[in-house]
């Protein structure tokens, strides 16, 4: 009988510990989910803004140059136009709002490479007013 009562008391203590732990956990869990959204979001905004701005700049740059070259249509521009079109197509296919995109890094590198190629064909320094560092005229 006495042993049974002791076991009951022991169980009660263990249960109480588990209950307090559980209540703390619940409270923490709610706080944590909340804090996680805020923290993750801040970091996501930084990264997303950087990539969005970079890729958007490439697109605006290429589209405008393409129109300018098409306007003064000339056979000697055909190579430039081809490369510009290829860059534009790559950018438009790129899911710039999706950080979980599998080939994000490879595609980024491809676009950067193509952009450099475009710049060199157009005789424009590739840091020309597109990167923050190059914000002063680099000619």
């Amino acid at each position: 009988m006495a042993a049974a009562r002791e076991t009951d008391a022991f169980d009660a203590i263990v249960m109480a510990e588990a209950r307090f732990h559980g209540e703390g956990y619940q409270e923490g869990y709610v706080e944590g989910t909340h804090a996680g959204v805020i923290e993750g979001r801040q970091y996501g905004i930084q990264q997303g803004a950087k990539i969005g701005l970079e890729i958007g700049s490439y697109l605006g740059f290429s589209m405008t140059w393409l129109r300018l070259l098409q306007k003064h249509s000339d056979d000697k521009h055909s190579k430039k136009i081809k490369v510009l079109e290829s860059l534009i197509e790559t950018i438009q296919r790129f899911p710039h709002q999706d950080p979980t995109y599998d080939s994000l890094q490879e595609d980024l590198e491809r676009m950067r490479g193509k952009f450099k190629q475009v710049c060199s064909l157009l005789h424009v320094p590739s840091d020309f007013r597109l990167s923050r560092e190059g914000s002063a005229l680099s000619f």
Binding site: Q42, G44, G48
Partner: peptide, 15 residues
């Protein structure tokens, strides 16, 4: 989840 959300939103606007 927060990262993805912030990334998408910022990327769209800055694009």
């Amino acid at each position: 989840q927060g990262f993805n959300q912030g990334y998408g939103e910022a990327a769209k606007i800055m694009f």
